[in-house]
């Protein structure tokens, strides 16, 4: 065992792993984290605690992860390269390990321009850091854990023992390069991988075939990303605007049909689409887990943590293994 985290143990047991996602609030309200943690607890092996996703200021990943941990939910803390140099990153990693955190997902981080993309003012004029990139960050975590050394070479008397993760966009541009992209993260030391949300399962399977031919599925645990769709509009947006995500037309049609069944009733429109979205998510989970080389699923119900229980149960993934 590298970290002894539940996520690591479930994967080692050979059973499909389930991770979910918890978005910390844009305020100092720790109770919000507790509330969300209670919705997820028991229905996943660990939950990602996002690190200021879309570059919006929120409770830090480490603080929210510590709250989740104290409330019985195993966290996967996230660490982006956007906001910290290697000094701050390593200091935070030591602190996180001292707080009992065991999983860390390494990310480049969304560009600060995203913070003002919606209704928020955000901080589009912020300076980004990118002292190191994701591959380098993965390498730093591995070096700290396995060699007991800081990036600069100074020894760590007590080394942080993280189960190290990275993200992967299997269908991102340029698509032929994406397997090499994964190879680099695995070579750098990624123990597990969570993918970008997958809707086009056929294309994902083609990419996974390449990954198996490279033997990467045996060197890292790949968790397929499932983003629970809420509406036809969301699917259309994801298809047209989110990098590395393509949504088959039939799936958008299917959601539109669910919407149309509500007639003019707006409330019902929402309900029916959400029900259909949950069905789609369950099917995607099952298809992903049938894909050779996939070791689990990473289910994101964005600002909809309450949906996870039903999805995990209906997908036959409940109860979670006791390891």
């Amino acid at each position: 065992m590298k970290s002894g985290s539940t996520l690591e143990k479930v994967l080692a047991s050979g059973q499909p792993a389930v991770t979910a996602e918890l978005g910390p609030p844009m305020s100092a309200d720790g109770h919000e984290v507790v509330k969300k943690a209670q919705l997820l607890k028991g229905f996943c092996d660990a939950a990602n605690i996002t690190d200021c996703q879309t570059a919006v200021v929120r409770i830090s990943s480490i603080a929210a992860a510590a709250i989740a941990y104290q409330n019985g939910l195993e966290p996967v803390m996230q660490m982006t390269c956007r906001d910290r140099n290697r000094i701050a990153i390593q200091a935070d990693l030591l602190g996180a390990a001292a707080l009992g955190l065991k999983n860390c997902l390494c990310l480049a981080g969304d560009h600060q321009k995203f913070s003002a993309a919606g209704k928020l003012k955000g901080h589009p004029g912020a300076k980004n850091v990118y002292d190191v990139d994701t591959c380098q960050l993965v390498g730093i975590l591995k070096k700290m854990r396995d060699e007991g050394k800081q990036e600069g070479g100074d020894p760590l008397e007590v080394a942080p023992q993280f189960f190290v993760g990275a993200s992967w966009t299997p269908m991102g541009d340029p698509i032929d390069f994406r397997p090499i992209n994964l190879l680099k993260k695995v070579n750098a030391g990624a123990d597990f991988i969570q993918t970008q949300g997958i809707y086009d399962m056929e294309l994902f399977r083609k990419q996974m075939e390449k990954i198996r031919n490279m033997g990467l599925h045996e060197r890292t645990a790949i968790l397929a990303g499932i983003i629970v769709p809420k509406s036809a509009m969301m699917l259309k947006y994801m298809d047209s605007s989110v990098a590395g995500v393509s949504v088959p037309k039939e799936m958008i049609d299917r959601m539109n049909k669910a919407k149309a069944a509500a007639g003019e009733d707006k409330k019902k429109m929402k309900e029916l689409q959400e029900q259909e979205g949950i069905k789609i998510a369950i099917e995607l989970i099952q298809q992903a887990l049938e894909t050779p080389g996939v070791k689990g699923v990473h289910i994101q119900a964005i600002e909809w943590e309450s949906a996870i229980e039903g999805i995990v149960k209906a997908a036959g993934l409940y109860p979670r293994p006791q390891v």
């Binding site: 981080g109 560009h111 990118y130 990139d133 994701t134 991102g172 541009d173 340029p174 990098a243 590395g244």
Partner: peptide, 16 residues
């Protein structure tokens, strides 16, 4: 590169 990545591309590449 908007993120000065040395081991790119990141997941944000969209149609080039």
């Amino acid at each position: 590169c908007s993120k000065t990545l040395m081991n790119g591309p990141c997941g944000g590449t969209n149609k080039g």
